[in-house]
Write a protein that binds this DNA or RNA. Structure first.
Length: 204
DNA sequence: AGGAAGATCTACT
DNA sequence: GTAGATCTTCCTA
């Protein structure tokens, strides 16, 4: 079945809105769940790339041993203390991790985007990734940042159309499940990874 | 200046 | 399933 058709059929054009910063002024857990089914939009020159968010993880502040904020505020993680809605990018094993700052007032946190379901600009994504297999385009945090050309130069910018990266709500409804976070040394008891059920682009 | 860690990816078997 | 690649950043000296 063509999943793209299924999702676009349920989306209503009139209901489409661009997420504003207030969306991210909540617990990272809530934001991580609510980002599922939203559309990440990226503009590069005259090309438009779009993908539906199908997998996320929530990270908290100094109380979370898996978080980049665990060892306190440093140069490389200071964005996690800053305004919700900002982009937070950092490198792991030669891969850029695309996060969005998300937390309540006077707290610390971010949401990692772990996988996208590609919808538009697929040829362009393939060029950026140097592969032809659509299933491998954006089914992991390092892969999607490469496909969408997101790197450290985006760090600290707000999600917004002016910055050529933003997220749209098209009223798509999804069903999700949760698990423990992937690849972390020490996780919390709570399950903080969230993913769309039965989507082939979830990373595992 | 060098070592080590890391929220990963790829190419194998 | 897993070993090895690969590089950015931080930390210590």
């Amino acid at each position: 079945m063509n999943l793209n058709t299924k999702f676009s059929a349920r989306a209503s054009r009139e209901k489409t809105t661009v997420l504003k910063n207030d969306f991210f002024k909540r617990s990272p857990k809530v934001v991580a769940i609510e980002l599922l089914g939203k559309i990440l939009v990226r503009k590069i020159n005259d090309k438009i790339l779009e993908g539906m968010i199908v997998e996320t993880e929530a990270y908290f502040g100094e109380e979370d041993p898996a978080s980049r904020a665990y060892h306190g505020k440093k140069n490389y993680n200071k964005e996690m203390w800053e305004e919700p809605g900002k982009i937070f990018v950092y490198n792991v094993h030669n891969n850029w991790m695309f996060n969005i700052v998300a937390h309540e007032e006077n707290k610390v946190g971010a949401v990692l985007i772990r996988a996208l379901h590609p919808l538009r600009g697929i040829e362009e994504m393939m060029k950026h990734r140097g592969i032809r297999d659509i299933r491998e385009l954006t089914n992991g945090p390092g892969k999607l940042s490469k496909a969408f050309r997101i790197d450290k130069s985006m760090n600290g910018k707000f999600l917004s159309p002016e910055n050529f990266v933003y997220i749209e709500d098209r009223g798509i409804e999804i069903e999700f499940d949760s698990s423990h976070r992937i690849g972390v040394r020490r996780d919390l008891k709570e399950r903080l990874r969230f993913f769309v059920i039965n989507d082939e682009f979830v990373s595992r």
